[in-house]
Amino acid sequence: MNLSSLSPFKKADRILVVDDSPDNVFLIQAILEEEGYKIVTAADGRTALAKIEESPPDLVLLDVMMPGMDGFEVTKRLRDNTSLPFIPILLITAYDHLSVAKGLDTGADDFIRKPVEVDELLARVRSLLRLKHSIDERDQIARQREDFVSRLTHDLRTPLIAADRMLSLMQQGALGELSPTMNETLDIMARSNKNLLAMANTLLEVYRYEAGRKNLNFSPVDLQALLQEIVKELTPLAAQKNLSLKLNEDENAKGDPGARNVVECDRLELHRVFTNLVGNAIKFTDTGSVNVSLNNTKSAGNPGIPQVIVEVEDTGPGISSEEQTILFERFRQGKHKHSGSGLGLHLSRRIVETHHGTIEVKSEVGKGSLFIVRIPVKHSGNS
């Protein structure tokens, strides 16, 4: 394909050629420009990285041996930069297969040996650009799908909220006295509508997190007070099933306000996480108890960083090892008769990870479940 054959509506692919040899750059540039590609050049690795940051190309042709920063290091830095889109990297090398293996392991997509053969160069460039276009198209479709679901879910909330308010007014007798049968029917309708509204809200939050559109408001929060609030809110729900719901407070914090667990977090989001975990424990437990524990300890991964550990333990039916492997995935429903949409735990994991924490489950069938959340903590005395 030469320049004259390019459609006037098709944007020419932009290729960055990185080589410290002016002769090599001139040769490759002449070959590729003849084919209609737009060529940008750089004589060293640092200049190349700066140009990529400024305007990412569609493909990088990268010489392996360059002074200052070689092609391996440039490749590694590009692959480590998660803010960049996918950019194929074609290494140009005069060395043996060991350097090729190192380049591919570092993150390059293909290689070509010096001296460059014109037909081979063009074939490899076309192949990598097809890969680039395919991945870009896939990512665009994924973004469009996520945007569609987000917009649809957002629009669904309006009629659901209106229906919830209307049903509430009818239950209060605003439209006249209702018979016992009608009251029972309205109760069922109201519960179903609330469940659907909760599902729509959760789905909307999931897509906000996945699209990077969720804005969090971090501030110091007393996690012990937050858990006390949640347990108080959910105690009536546990009482309906004759379950014991108890918060085992951090012994280190009793009688010492300065030792209370303070976490830099978005309070509403952590409220959502622990409400979901405790609510699930109550929902899936038919007899026995639900216990919430709070402790402060050192991080196992980094002993210098204190963290808070919240455990939610129930005496429910337990979770099989097979289900545990997919429990936090999106739309993965459990086999329990009360299993929901499969979004709550996925969203909880998203929130916890955004707070630089972890969430895990330990369970055996017939022996209950234990959910463990670890979040970096900041004591009020150090805030």
Rank of each mutant, 00 (worst) to 15 (best):
Q29N: 14
I92K: 06
N302C: 08
F284E: 01
K283H: 09
A259R: 06
N291I: 15
L247V: 08
K335Q: 14
D119K: 15
A198H: 06
V373A: 02
I372N: 02
H154C: 06
L78M: 15
E323Y: 06
V100H: 06
A163V: 03
T297K: 15
T47Q: 03
A239V: 05
F331I: 00
E229K: 14
V74I: 08
H355C: 09
Q240G: 08
H338G: 00
I305H: 13
N195E: 11
D314I: 11
K10P: 05
M199P: 00
D44G: 00
N252F: 10
L234M: 13
Q172E: 08
L122E: 12
K214S: 01
R267W: 03
F328V: 00
T75E: 07
S83G: 05
D266V: 14
D110C: 12
T75C: 15
L169N: 11
F9Q: 07
I15K: 02
L178Y: 11
P220H: 10
D105I: 04
E54M: 10
G68T: 00
P88E: 05
G366W: 07
E120T: 15
M170N: 10
K298P: 01
E35R: 15
K102V: 05
A211R: 10
D19F: 02
P220Q: 08
D136Q: 11
A94P: 02
M166H: 04
F274V: 04
N24L: 14
L129A: 04
I87L: 02
S4G: 13
G368P: 04
K367T: 01
Q140P: 04
L169D: 09
S380Q: 05
R46A: 00
T75H: 07
T181R: 07
I31Y: 12
T41Y: 02
G381H: 15
Q228G: 09
M69D: 03
V278G: 05
D164Q: 09
I230R: 14
P303D: 10
L247W: 06
K11M: 11
A253C: 08
A253D: 06
P220W: 09
L6M: 10
I87G: 01
V273K: 09
E54G: 09
V74S: 03
T287H: 11
P257Y: 12
H346W: 00
I359V: 13
N261K: 03
P85M: 06
T287R: 13
P236W: 12
L6K: 12
E146S: 04
I135N: 07
G342T: 01
L62Y: 02
S150V: 06
N276D: 12
D147W: 11
I230E: 13
R79L: 08
N252I: 09
S339H: 06
T153I: 03
T315C: 06
M189W: 09
D109L: 14
L347M: 09
H346T: 00
S289V: 05
Q172N: 09
T285M: 06
R14P: 02
D80K: 04
N295M: 13
E311A: 09
R272K: 10
S369V: 04
L234W: 14
V377F: 03
H379W: 08
L129H: 08
A142I: 14
E229T: 08
V278M: 07
P317R: 13
I351P: 12
N81T: 01
